[in-house]
Design a protein around this nucleic acid. Structure first.
Lengths: 347, 347
DNA sequence: TCCTCGCATTGAAACGTTTGAAAGGTCATG
DNA sequence: CATGACCTTTCAAACGTTTCAATGCGAGGA
């Protein structure tokens, strides 16, 4: 299909293409970067030469000279949580529109990996960094910003205004979830979530408490069951503690700080022979794909995950290209998706 | 903490560090790359200068000159399937050991995105590419190999031996699943899976048929229910078809080509008021985290996902560094994990 | 004192691109 | 015929590193 010359092992460069097409090296570059200033005939000749030699532009050289990279990066917090992949998907779409590559890294909740990744990304001179950090106020983030690299914090709200962030209103999310349960007639509700070092957990709990108080229900009847992490296993463990409560203190509904907890709780509850929602109604948070697909489809608070990613990407691009960019904290509105796990009791 | 000079906006280069430390530019490079040939005093002086200026090595320049990059890439097939993230995790660990960065891309099952990604990665001159391709025999893969870039196909087996691959023995997996069901006394079993263009699906079915025949059961009693994709939704749909079969033809167990299908089937079955495993036993494939966490914990065929990723990374590194590398097709052994969804009936 | 050896440092040439100034060439105009 | 305007193409200087041959230097041996 192509008569490729070996060039004694080297991969072909613009110089080789130029020689093959009988033009200067600058013209080859023009064909790639400013084709409108090259005559049709020359352009075609050069393009054919590229094809025949199997030329692939050396991005390092391009970037070194041009001073600008064509990649964005997302440092995600937890690769095992589907939530972050939907966010990544949104970022990817925005990146695709802007004709940029997306470099996905995973810190796995370890500050140390996060720092390694940030360092590498700075070395790569990426156009911008999106990150869901282990700690929203980590010094490493300021370091990146200080170097002038656009950075946007995703799904967390840093206390300083040193960079942009996008997040979802978690207090509102908590209100929506518990309002829904109150409306369904529940008057004893458990909140599952922890550790409290995670801002989201606190805010969702805060929202829950607000609406609870506003509805005139006694504070003691909203029970906080702390968990050590937001995982399926912790959800199961919390379910056991719940089942162990004396009947008069046992809640009729649970609001979980995320869907993984909710799925664990659901599993434990059904496994113990209780029915959902008759014996225990459950609300999750995030509305991951598996929430709808659970054996009892899960009511959950949906966050606009893709939109979150997309907005973050747009902010980072604005910071990269717009000289009068101003940092902003974007907030999205969550939405309750009611399913069987909180279905209204008939009769 | 550091008295950083602005250098009128430029980010500092080795040259600046050299000036600040009062040494030549070559010495600075030596401090970074061959510290043993720099005297302790000089080294310390240079390191202090780096810190003070906030020097960050320009990776493009390094790579251009050195001709070697420090990154591996994984092009994953489907970001919504947790299976691939576990594979990615394994790759990441191996990359970490080799002190390389991992660049994760997602083709989302689209050939066109896959090609864009491969092209970009070749431009970046990554050290090697790991990929779970949309089609294991895509021309784009040969193109990469022809350019001399190490490439390893993950979880698929290409028919040509033009590159390495790692996969799991899917025929064996199919045998294990169905053997388990036969042992549990089932004599009418459904196989859910499709489309047949996916090699895995065919091989798992083949394994199922082999053991079925070897056990002397009539071929007609192993029923193939084709699905259009390996998703939760398709699993639900197949469940409805299953429920619609006349009682005498209805199987007592189902073997699903992956866990997403199995979860969908489980959901549909339980939702329709049937019990698992009493009315229908279910075996999935992949043993993703959500399998164990389902309302009825799912029996599944576990693939050594992390190990798969790790092995693939090692192969690609071998090809990149070992001159007498030979392509090989590594095969891993799957393992059945029995859970409640196929529990033995009491009495 | 002169030579040699070994070590630490320097200098300059690459790596493959982009870019803007300069140089050809063609053509219409004065 | 000379001039200038325009369009296309060439030229050469960057970009920030790494690398390796060359240099300088102090010590040890003759």
């Amino acid at each position: 299909m192509s008569s490729r010359q070996p060039l004694n092992g080297r991969t072909p460069s613009v110089k080789d293409v130029a020689a093959a097409a009988g033009v200067s090296l600058g013209t080859v570059s023009n064909v790639m970067n400013r084709p409108e200033m090259v005559s049709a005939g020359t352009r075609e000749r050069v393009e054919r030469a590229m094809l025949e030699l199997g030329f692939v532009r050396n991005e390092s050289a391009r970037q070194l000279r041009a001073g600008t990279s064509r990649t964005l990066a997302y440092v995600m917090l937890d690769g095992t949580n589907p939530f972050f992949h939907d966010v990544a998907q949104g970022i990817e779409l925005a990146a695709e529109d802007a004709d940029l590559s997306l470099f996905i890294c995973n810190s796995n909740g370890r500050t140390e990996r996060e720092e390694v990744h940030l360092d590498r990304l700075m070395q790569q001179r990426v156009q911008g960094i999106l990150i869901t950090p282990v700690h929203p106020d980590a010094a490493a983030l300021d370091e990146v910003a200080r170097r002038g690299i656009p950075i946007v914090v995703v799904d967390r709200t840093p206390s300083s205004g040193a960079f942009c962030s996008v997040a979802v209103d978690d207090v509102l999310g908590g209100r929506l979830a518990v309002e829904h349960l109150i409306e369904r007639g529940h008057t004893r509700v458990a909140f599952l979530g922890g550790p409290e070092s995670i801002g989201q957990v606190c805010e969702r709990l805060q929202g829950a408490r607000e609406i609870w108080a506003e509805s005139g229900l006694p504070a003691d009847d909203l029970i906080h069951l702390p968990t050590a992490a937001l995982t399926v296993g912790e959800g199961r463990a919390a379910g056991e503690r719940l089942a162990g409560l004396p009947a008069r203190r046992r809640p009729t509904a649970a609001f979980c700080a995320n869907d993984l907890l909710a799925l664990g709780l659901l599993q434990q509850t059904v496994g113990a022979g209780q029915r959902v929602p008759e014996d225990l109604a459950i609300v999750g948070y995030d509305d991951i794909e598996f929430a709808a697909a659970a054996a009892v489809p899960l009511t959950s608070v949906r966050q606009p995950r893709q939109e979150l990613g997309r907005a973050a990407a747009q902010l980072v691009l604005d910071e990269a290209t717009n000289p009068q960019h101003e940092h902003q904290q974007a907030t999205f509105i969550p939405e309750l998706v009611a399913r069987v796990s909180t279905a209204r009791q008939v009769g």
